[in-house]
Design a protein around this nucleic acid. Structure first.
Lengths: 341, 341
DNA sequence: TTGTAAGCGTTATCAC
DNA sequence: GTGATAACGCTTACAA
């Protein structure tokens, strides 16, 4: 059995409560006893028991991370490890630990989170996504349980602490960039329409075109659920059109890679024949052929800020709801060029 | 305040212990009381408190995951999310949760794990790597704390539960494959020499060449710590040689991608001028130009088996140490061809 | 079959 | 300043 606070107390000839106070660095404890107790702790190799502490405190110093339902797809995306690294650093700074939800289906995940929350395993929860329809979100909101969302809430924007890019503006800028290069036949290859990020980006794209007086075409807007394969599919559809686009806006680098591959097989050159821009700016964008122009959304920061916001929310529940917008930036590489007629 | 076992007891007109027994599905409880209690739980919306349970049981149903010191590099590798998915499924099956260690430096991680372990936060620990020299390993081993390693232990192979590929044999096969294609000038581009996997693969490579009667050349063996950049570096060195190799064995797909890029810049064609094979068979290998021949090491399974082995170890500490070897397979794509003189 | 009560390792509220 | 003691929510002998 491990050495407890009582053992230390005995060894140092004080009461357990005194030991507890020394650990907490309570102010009114004489330096002498502090030293005495600390020595005893050292000698016995004492380490505080988190579980007991959690029970007494009603707080665990653990943050729960919630993946979207389609774990398999999500895990494949370089977005995940990077945001995780950000979360990890943010949590670490304040001495919080990270716990993952497991579960493959949406149902399993929901139940897992409910257990986590009601079971008192975590002090707060990070939603790593934002869906249009989300039971879990409603659950957390109703309980008033501390949570933060990475992405923009579909509803209740003012009532939910979240960390996000301005995806609407980013995509508007991206479309404008293509317009400035002389493109007019600009297609949009989006992801799962249940994700708010897809919606936001689509709206930004539409806005830019509309402002430029270019009519929107349904056949230029495609949504694919899977990343790599999705890219292939989309290109196949678009290139069959009588008037194929000369520029593509792709909502994910991985998908863009699929696009690039398929285009290559079709002997369509990038950027000479068609321009491509995508989102996330993950490592691989540098290594593709040609290197992809991509919007850096600061994934690490998304995670880092989310952890910090959540912890703040946990520790100061009275403070007002916070929204953090992480800046983005178009990183120009070699996949876009002026339109050649 | 949340609803507790006592509230349920009151509502059902039984003692708290009875409620506890119902939860545990204790055999000698009458069906009638079971029903009564369950209804009360339902009505009150009762959820067991994991923390309290953990304290009473001295067990948390949580597994700790330990990253190698160089978190940043590790997170970038597609290996990580895949192994995590495997761990997640393995843990989920037995209703265990996953907790991550945070911390950037090796020192921070070490302390984090010690806290986790001594603080009773986790029932067992997964080491996601195997290093030649490892303080943490020694620490866990000395305490006899349940843990499992993904990779081959450098020492105490018989005494440590681990899940691994047969990397020695795999690399021998890979080298043999190159030999069979007529290559004799085969170079090896390895990773961090502190990782056992690098060592094992190097040994397999050497063995194959020696068996074929081909003298080992120091200048054909290169080790790089970082993945992408490492690939570039290595190619630069190798191609400067008077007798550059005609085949490359690269220990990581990501590194191989860097290799491919650099080669392309040098106008060296793959596989016409040089053949390449790498390890891990991550998604990107299919998408590179040309698609990479790679050794599938079943990363998901490594994680899955690790979780299962660890849980078994936790629940049956008496059982003998287990070693699981996950099979590998060379997935032939387009980056290797017969040697052209 | 069920109830009583001690215990898990802390923290926190009183006293002194 | 420090020491008793109750409390956190659950499990588990031991009784009944």
């Amino acid at each position: 059995m491990a050495v407890t606070i009582k053992d230390v107390a005995k060894a140092a000839n004080v009461a357990p409560s005194t030991v507890s106070r020394v650990i907490a660095n309570h102010p009114r404890i004489s330096e002498r006893t502090k030293k005495k107790v600390r020595e005893a702790m050292e000698n016995l190799g004492y380490h505080p028991n988190f579980i007991a502490r959690s029970l007494a405190n009603q707080s665990t110093q653990v943050l729960g991370l919630v993946m979207p339902g389609s774990t398999e797809v999500f895990f494949q995306n370089p977005f995940f490890p990077t945001v995780l690294r950000g979360l990890s650093e943010g949590a670490d700074e304040k001495q919080y630990a990270l716990q993952l939800t497991t579960g493959k289906t949406e149902e399993e995940i929901y139940n897992g989170v409910v257990q986590m929350v009601q079971g008192g395993r975590v002090d707060g929860v990070v939603l790593l996504y934002s869906k249009v329809e989300d039971r879990l979100l409603m659950y957390l909101k109703e309980r008033n349980f501390p949570f933060v969302m990475i992405g923009k809430p579909f509803k209740y924007v003012e009532e939910i602490t979240h960390v996000d890019n301005d995806n609407f503006r980013a995509t508007k800028e991206v479309a404008q960039y293509m317009l400035d290069l002389g493109h007019e036949r600009i297609a949009f290859i989006g992801g799962d329409l249940n994700l708010v990020v897809t919606v936001e980006r689509l709206l930004g794209y539409e806005k830019a075109l509309r402002q430029a007086g270019i009519p929107l075409r349904d056949d230029y807007i495609i949504h694919e659920e899977f990343l790599r394969e999705g890219g292939r599919e989309a290109v196949n559809e678009l290139m069959m059109l009588k008037e194929p686009p000369t520029a593509l806006i792709v909502v994910d680098d991985l998908m863009a890679l699929g696009v690039l591959n398929t285009l290559d097989e079709m002997n369509i050159r990038v950027p000479e024949d068609i321009s491509i821009i995508s989102f996330n700016n993950v490592l691989m964008t540098e290594m593709s052929k040609p290197p992809l122009t991509s919007v850096d959304i600061n994934i690490f920061d998304l995670g880092f800020q989310a952890a910090k916001s959540l912890i703040q929310r946990i520790e100061n529940p009275k403070e007002p709801i916070k929204r953090v917008i992480v800046p983005h930036e178009i990183v120009k590489r070699c996949s876009c060029s002026e339109r050649n007629e």
